[in-house]
Design a protein around this nucleic acid. Structure first.
Lengths: 190, 190
DNA sequence: CTTCAACTGTGATCTATGTCACATAATTGC
DNA sequence: GCAATTATGTGACATAGATCACAGTTGAAG
């Protein structure tokens, strides 16, 4: 399946666009290839785009003053990633996004999204819906981190995204769960 | 300021509606009064509405199997609250919402929101924008909880919402920060 | 005004997790 | 194919925070 079809399938799950509308919509995206380890957004950057993952796996993460990494999200195919705070507010990036594996993505600029939302009511619906999903997922993550112990959160993650087990090194999983790599290791090597 | 004016001011910060459009928009809201301690949404309820706070303070929270409470959000005037997961997906509530103080709210049903979004493009823009804000706030909360110690998170909260200090009992603040009331108490009484 | 419930403070433990240190294994680049 | 990273396992110890127990304090309702 090519990029145009993958995105179309994704959009059509919630939104109805005519072929003409979809063609116009898709024309605003640019396809990009990245190598494993390559940065897409780095702290301090001007953030002008968001990214739709076609293939591969990205991570969005924050590095604190003690140079410790905290992973907000792994982005698998059909997921979106960016520093949305910076993107919406026109501020500099505080979140980084880079590639855990080689990746194919579609980029969409903030201005193109806003233009499309203005021009096509259905597109605005689509992006509202998408953010709703993101918001619900974020809430769930907050509750899960307050409520459940590390083992539970690890198993929840593995159950929901088994692909991660093979693709993502354990210390990154630990950084996602918010524990040290040693703690995660000891969970299954007591 | 009355309910209609408060909501109008809130909406007009991001969105331009004609007086006629706004009147129509507002006609879909219902004003409700609640007493301190009263429940608005309880676990297991069918969730059909979201709530815009005019006056007072709500909390949205989760109770786990050990009957421990975790607060997701305090909702102050001009904030929105509901169990959005349940609201969007038509599932039963897992999140509770109740009143920390007496409260005046405007309720909007899910179906009315969707109808308004369909009918008035600008309204769809408003709700997309609103969820964007919520999403950004949720991300910030996730990072903050992974990254900062309890004292930092407490001070951040107090700095951003000083009103809470007088209105909200400390054990609820602790439930928001995800620590025990004893730990929070000891922060400032060592 | 008084009575009961909700809220807050504080000591004595216990426990999960962090940190540091080092060893080994697996990947990647050349 | 080998060297150099990068990833993982594991012991010893430190520590933030949980839990339990109880006392004092405030506040709301009759």
């Amino acid at each position: 399946m090519n990029a145009e079809e993958i995105l179309k399938l994704h959009v059509s799950k919630t939104t109805t666009l005519s072929d003409e509308q979809y063609g116009y919509f898709f024309s605003h995206f640019k396809q990009l290839s990245f190598k494993k380890g390559q940065a897409i957004i780095s702290e301090g950057d001007k953030v002008e785009h968001e990214y739709f993952v076609l293939d591969g796996c990205l991570k969005s993460f924050y590095i604190n003053d003690e140079v410790k990494m905290f992973i907000l999200q792994f982005a698998m195919p059909t997921w979106w990633a960016s520093d949305y705070n910076a993107l919406y507010n026109g501020t500099r990036a505080t979140i980084n996004v880079d590639c855990i594996t080689n990746a194919e993505v579609l980029s969409l600029s903030n201005s193109a999204r806003e233009k499309l939302c203005k021009e096509i009511h259905e597109v605005e619906y689509f992006f509202r819906w998408r953010t709703n999903k993101g918001y619900a997922a974020a809430q769930k993550k907050i509750l899960s981190s307050m409520n459940k112990d590390t083992r539970h959160r690890y198993e929840e993650l593995m159950e929901q995204y088994p692909e991660l087990y093979n693709i993502v090194p354990k210390h990154l999983i630990a950084a996602y769960l918010g524990v040290s790599r040693e703690t995660l290791s000891r969970l299954y090597h007591p």
